[in-house]
C-alpha cells in the first residue's frame, strides 16, 4: 500500500529529509534553508589527530541527526525516533509504520548503497533517506540528493541501515508523531533561537578546533604541511578538505550558501532587521572564498603549484574566511530582536 509522496530534491540529505517529512505532516512553511538554520546546521571542525577515510577529520556541518532533532524541538513538533540492535526488529517496526501509511526517515551508510556510483561510496554513515512505501517486497525510497525516487530491496535496505563504523546508524529511524501546523510566530521564535545557538557554536566552543577558531587553526596548520608532511600527503589532505567542503549535499561552499539563503529567508520574517541581509552577504563572500580556496588547493594537489608560497596563500584563504565568519556571527549575536 502506498500513499502519495512528493519527492523534493534538496542540496543536503538531512535538511531535505527534515523539510520533506515536515511537509508531509502538515508543516508546509519550512523549506530546506529554514530547516538548516533553525537546526543550527552550520559548523566547522578540524580534528588533526582523528583520521576519517584517509584524511584528517573535517566537517562543515553539525553532528548528524541534530538538524532534524533541533528543528522539531524548536518548533514544538513531537518526534518518534528509535535505534535497534536487531535488524529483524528494525524491519518489523519499519514495515509496521509503513502499513500505517507513515513516511519514515532512516539513517543509512552510503558504502553499500546500490544507486550511488562506486566512486562516491565511502564508509560514510550519516546519510538520510525517506522510506515512503513498500511495493512487491521492495522499499520505495526518496533520497533528497537524487533527482528522482528510487527503491531498495529488503536485503539492500537492511545492509545500509546496519552499516558499521563511525556514526553507525543502528537502524535509526525517525518521523514527526502527528500531523500539526506551525504558526508564523513559532517559526519566528525558532529562527532567533537557531541563530543564537549557531553563533555560539561558531564563536565560543572551547578547544580551538571548532568554529571560527577551528578555521583559523587549520589555516595556520596548512602553512606547515609542506615541510611537515611532504607534498604527497599534504596534497591528499587538501583533496580531502575539498571533498568534505564540496561533497554532494553541501549546496556549494561548505554549506555557507545555504546558510546565507536561510538568513535572507529569516529577513522575510523580520523585515526590520537589515543586519540579516548584510550578514547573508558576508556568508556569500565566505562561501565564494571557500570555493576560491578549493581552486587553489586543486592546483596544489595536482602538482601544478607546490611552493611554500602556495601553501601560505592557501592558509591565508582560511584565515581570511575565519575573519569574515567571525564578523558575521558576532553581528548575528548582537542583534537586538524586535517583534
Amino acid at each position: 500500500m502506498t500513499s502519495t509522496f512528493n519527492h523534493i530534491q534538496s542540496a543536503h540529505c538531512e535538511n531535505g529529509v527534515t523539510s520533506n517529512l515536515l511537509n508531509h505532516h502538515g508543516v508546509t512553511n519550512i523549506d530546506e534553508p529554514l530547516a538548516f538554520g533553525i537546526g543550527s546546521g552550520l559548523f566547522f571542525i578540524y580534528v588533526p589527530f582523528l583520521t576519517f577515510s584517509n584524511g584528517p577529520a573535517i566537517a562543515f556541518r553539525t553532528l548528524p541527526g541534530k538538524i532534524f532533532a533541533r528543528t522539531c524541538k524548536l518548533l514544538d513538533i513531537p518526534i518518534y525516533s528509535k535505534r535497534f540492535s536487531s535488524p529483524k526488529k528494525a524491519k518489523e517496526y519499519l514495515d509496521d509504520f509503513l502499513n500505517q501509511n507513515k513516511f519514515v526517515g532512516v539513517q543509512v551508510g552510503v558504502f553499500y548503497l546500490p544507486y550511488f556510483p562506486k566512486e562516491y561510496r565511502f564508509h560514510f554513515n550519516a546519510h538520510n533517506i525517506i522510506v515512503y512505501g513498500k511495493e512487491n517486497g521492495n522499499y520505495l525510497v526518496s533520497d533528497p540528493v537524487m533527482e528522482t525516487t528510487t527503491s531498495l530491496s529488503s536485503e539492500e535496505l537492511e545492509r545500509v541501515r546496519f552499516s558499521k563504523g563511525v556514526f553507525a546508524p543502528q537502524g535509526y529511524m525517525y518521523f514527526p508523531k502527528n500531523k500539526t501546523e506551525v504558526t508564523t510566530e513559532q517559526v519566528k521564535k525558532a529562527i532567533i533561537l537557531g541563530i543564537r545557538r549557531n553563533a555560539r557554536d561558531m564563536l565560543y566552543l572551547p578547544g580551538g578546533i571548532a568554529g571560527v577558531s577551528g578555521i583559523n587553526f587549520m589555516g595556520r596548520r596548512i602553512k606547515k604541511w609542506r615541510d611537515k608532511l611532504g607534498l604527497r600527503k599534504a596534497g591528499l589532505n587538501l583533496a580531502n578538505l575539498v571533498r568534505m567542503q564540496e561533497e554532494i549535499g553541501t549546496g556549494g561552499g561548505g554549506f555557507r550558501y545555504i546558510y546565507a539563503a536561510f538568513l535572507q529567508k529569516a529577513y522575510t520574517f523580520y523585515p526590520a532587521h537589515d543586519e540579516l541581509l548584510k550578514v547573508a552577504d558576508l556568508l556569500t563572500k565566505s562561501g565564494d572564498l571557500w570555493r576560491d580556496s578549493a581552486v587553489q588547493a586543486s592546483g596544489m594537489y595536482k602538482g601544478r603549484i607546490t611552493e611554500q608560497v602556495d601553501f601560505d596563500t592557501m592558509g591565508d584563504y582560511l584565515l581570511e574566511i575565519a575573519d569574515i565568519e567571525k564578523k558575521a556571527f558576532k553581528s548575528l549575536r548582537e542583534i537586538q530582536w524586535k517583534k
Partner: peptide
C-alpha cells in the same frame, strides 16, 4: 565541478 572531480580522482 572539475575541482571536485580532481579531488576525488586523487583520493
Amino acid at each position: 565541478w572539475n575541482v571536485k572531480y580532481s579531488a576525488l580522482e586523487l583520493v
